[in-house]
Design a protein around this nucleic acid. Structure first.
Lengths: 138, 138
DNA sequence: TCCTAGCTTAGACTCTGTCTAAACAAAGAT
DNA sequence: ATCTTTGTTTAGACAGAGTCTAAGCTAGGA
């Protein structure tokens, strides 16, 4: 069973067939999909699934804190099911692929107090960019 | 005179009245505007300015490397005229305002070699999130 | 069984951003 | 001064991503 579904159930969130298919599609890949890519893949298992349900479900999972919404390249958001593990992203500027990475230490420690402008800073995310091995060659 | 205009002129880029108004609007504020916010403000000085020109001009300034395009919260991109200074961003999760901040040290140093997956990593950007002083109170 | 609350659906709609074709402007050639 | 060429601006049509709405559906409780 999908680990994401387990985490969602803990919030007393009703797991309908639609929501299960969406959660499993999201978790089943190590790539971070857009909403439309999730719709497309989920429709292979449940053809009558609607676009609105995919958007509703993704937004609710984000609101529950179990899925991360990524607003990186291009016009569409991508969704990352590993909201519970502290991690960051590495993007290839050639082909657009994205990998999860981990930093040494906590980026919050790298923002000195006089740079915080009185904010209560709670989160930090780092995006690295470069060229993947394939794109370096060509 | 606007510093951004000076930098743009160095690229042998024609500074038309429209482009000047857009550049000065962009640079005149410490907030990072969306394209439509820039259009709205620039139209106060040049009412016949068209939306297409604002988008064209912003995209060209980004291509010249003199303006940064930020894809953070919400549906629209924001534009940052300080492309030449290494800096990162702090966003208020309450009201959405955004400030420029500086880290101690270089974020590229926080990504160990075995986390690079063979990429040639060239850039890193850090986004901090939290609540600004006003939003903390309410 | 009936009610209620919540979930799903199709499709209309909104918002950002891009594209196109035509009008316009500036600089150099004649 | 006029013409030509090249690049710029414009309005409006278009496209993609995401939201909203109203109606129908489903599951669980009285």
């Amino acid at each position: 069973m999908s680990d994401l579904v387990t985490r969602l159930r803990r919030h007393n969130w009703r797991i309908t067939p639609q929501r299960r298919v969406i959660a499993e599609t999201l978790e089943g890949s190590h790539v971070h999909f857009t909403a439309d890519e999730i719709l497309e893949r989920a429709c292979e298992r449940m053809p009558e699934l609607s676009r609105a349900t995919v958007y509703n479900t993704l937004n609710e999972m984000v609101a529950l804190g179990e899925v991360l919404e990524l607003n990186l390249e291009g016009r569409s958001k991508r969704y990352d099911p590993n909201a519970d593990h502290e991690h960051h992203h590495l993007i290839c500027e050639g082909c657009g692929q994205m990998k999860d990475v981990h930093t040494v230490g906590d980026p919050l420690d790298w923002l000195p107090g006089d740079e915080r402008h009185g904010f209560a800073v709670t989160r930090a995310s780092v995006t690295y960019r470069g060229l993947c091995p394939d794109c370096r060659e060509s």
